[in-house]
Design a protein around this nucleic acid. Structure first.
Length: 250
DNA sequence: GCCCAGGTGAAGC
DNA sequence: GCTTCACATGGG
C-alpha cells in the first residue's frame, strides 16, 4: 500500500481532506475511514442497556478505521503498558527514523511512511530501543522477521475464520490475545473481535459488575458474548466513552 | 519517590 | 487451570 499524506478536518456533515497530489480514486481514504459503513444497523445490534445507551450518546458518529495490517500490528506491539501519547511518540519516531519520505503540500514539514517489515527486521535492536519502546523492541524485531520470512500472511488474514486468524497472530512474539484482537478488528475487519484492555476492563467492571472483583478471563468472556455480532464496535464505543467522557465519574 | 500506562511471557502455585 | 511478576520508559 502506497503511503500518502493527508490532513482531515471534520465538519458537521462532511470531512475535508487536504492532500499532497491530485487524487482521482479516493478509495484508499474512504476504505481507511470506513465512511461507507452504515452506523444504524451497528448501533441497533448493541445490547439495549444503560451503559451502551450512554456510550452511544456520548460518542455519536464514532467509527472504526480499516488500517493496513502490518502498521496496525507493529503499532500495537509497541503499545503494551504505554500511554496513548507515548505510543504516538514511538510510532512517530519509528516513521522518521525507518520510514520513507512521502510527498507533502508546499510549506508542510517532511513526513514519513510507516516502515516496512523488511526495514524493521534488518534494524539493530538498539536503534529500535532508541525509539523509546524499551523491551518491546525485541518483540517488534522478531515479529518483523517472522513476517518477512512468510510465517504469516497479514494481508490474507481476513480470509481466514476468526479463530484461525487469531491463532496465527498469537503465534507471533509479543502478540497476546489483546493485540491479536486489535489487529483482527482494526485491520482484519473482524467485527466480532473484542480487545480487552485496561480501559475496557474498567468500563465493564464499573458498568456491568458494579465494581465487583472479576477475573480478566471472565471479562473477556462477557465481552465476547454480551455485545453481539458487532461487539468490536461496542468495544470502541465503551473505550472512547470511558477515556474521553467518563474517566473516573462512572 | 510512587503509581500507572490500549500487555506479554514465564514462572509460581 | 489460575495468579504473580519482570520487562523499559515517561507522565502525573
Amino acid at each position: 500500500m502506497r503511503a500518502r499524506w493527508v490532513r482531515l478536518q471534520q465538519r458537521r456533515d462532511s470531512i475535508i481532506a487536504e492532500v499532497a497530489e491530485p487524487v482521482s480514486d479516493w478509495r484508499w481514504l474512504t476504505d481507511y475511514l470506513q465512511v461507507e459503513q452504515a452506523l444504524a444497523p451497528v448501533l441497533a445490534a448493541f445490547p439495549d442497556d444503560q451503559p451502551m445507551r450512554d456510550a452511544v450518546k456520548a460518542c455519536r458518529g464514532l467509527r472504526l478505521l480499516r488500517q493496513e495490517p502490518w502498521e496496525c500490528l507493529a503499532s500495537f506491539i509497541c503499545s503494551s503498558t504505554k500511554q496513548i501519547v507515548q505510543i504516538k511518540q514511538i510510532v512517530t519516531l519509528l516513521c522518521s527514523r525507518f520510514g520513507e519520505p512521502v510527498s507533502v503540500p508546499a510549506g508542510e514539514e517532511t513526513a514519513f511512511s510507516f516502515p516496512s517489515p523488511d526495514r524493521i527486521a534488518s534494524a539493530d535492536e538498539r536503534e529500535l530501543r532508541a525509539c523509546k519502546m524499551g523491551f518491546r523492541a525485541a518483540y517488534l524485531k522478531a515479529t518483523a522477521r517472522a513476517v518477512v520470512a512468510g510465517e504469516i500472511d497479514l494481508n490474507r488474514l481476513h480470509l481466514l475464520p476468526v479463530s484461525e486468524a487469531r491463532e496465527a497472530l498469537m503465534d507471533l512474539p509479543g502478540v497476546g490475545r489483546k493485540i491479536a484482537d486489535c489487529v483482527l478488528l482494526f485491520a482484519g475487519g473482524f467485527q466480532e473481535a473484542f480487545p480487552v484492555d485496561v480501559w475496557v476492563q474498567k468500563a465493564i467492571r464499573r458498568l456491568y459488575f458494579r465494581g465487583r472483583r472479576v477475573s480478566a478471563r471472565r471479562l473477556q468472556e462477557f465481552g465476547a458474548t454480551h455485545f453481539g455480532l458487532w461487539s468490536g464496535y461496542a468495544q470502541q464505543y465503551l473505550f472512547h466513552y470511558m477515556r474521553v467522557h467518563a474517566r473516573d465519574r462512572v
